[in-house]
Simulated scan of single mutants.
Amino acid sequence: MSRPLEPLVRLIRQGAVFGVVGVAATLTHVLIALALEGLAGLEPLIANLIGYTCGIGVSYLGHARLTFASPARDGAQFARFLAVTLFALGLNQLIVWICVHRIGWPFWAALIAVVLLVPGPTFVLAKLWAFRRPSV
């Protein structure tokens, strides 16, 4: 017999795991980018791109396995995940541009806005589209 709050508890758990995986992916991105720029002498944009790409790997595997309990070896799912990631990156950049260049906020304040505004829609898109289970 199913409990009435079970879907809500599952959603809250997924949201929490989504956050933890997101932090791990972000740390991977930042630490690799800083190491490549500082230790290997790569140009910052190249180092950032490589770090971001590594972060995508951590994010995809973490969300597939831990957040949504989906198989990681699914090409269509990975393609949808990349689309969600690119949407999130675009939204991130748009928020920073508006906050810094239009409103005049400092960069750190724009990043707070990004952290507050981007994860929600990203979670919804990941749950309902990128990692959705096919109906049988």
Rank of each mutant, 00 (worst) to 15 (best):
L49W: 04
P106M: 01
G62N: 10
L117C: 15
H63R: 03
P119G: 12
V20I: 14
L116R: 07
A83Q: 04
V115Q: 13
V124I: 13
T26R: 10
P119T: 13
G19F: 10
A24D: 10
A47R: 00
Y52D: 03
K127G: 09
I112Q: 01
P119N: 15
C54V: 09
R132S: 15
I46H: 00
E43Q: 09
A25K: 05
A126V: 04
V9Y: 07
K127N: 12
A35T: 15
Q77D: 01
Y52A: 08
V114S: 08
L45V: 05
V115G: 13
L45T: 02
I56G: 04
G120F: 14
I112E: 12
S70W: 02
W97R: 03
W105G: 03
P121V: 13
A25C: 07
A35H: 07
F131I: 08
A25L: 05
P106E: 10
R13H: 14
R65N: 08
A126P: 02
C99N: 12
V115C: 10
S2F: 15
R73A: 15
L49F: 05
T67L: 02
A40R: 06
M1D: 13
P134N: 09
L8N: 08
L66M: 09
A33Q: 14
G15D: 09
F131M: 04
D74S: 00
R102A: 12
G19W: 11
V20A: 15
L49C: 03
A76T: 04
S2A: 14
G75P: 01
N48T: 05
G62K: 12
P44F: 05
V58S: 10
E37I: 04
E6D: 15
A113W: 06
V9C: 07
L66S: 10
A130C: 08
E43H: 00
H63G: 11
V21W: 02
F78N: 00
Q77P: 00
G57H: 09
F78I: 04
R65T: 15
T53V: 11
V114E: 10
F81P: 00
L39N: 02
I50M: 09
L27Q: 06
V20K: 01
P4R: 15
A126S: 14
W105H: 03
W129Q: 05
K127M: 08
F81G: 06
P4Q: 14
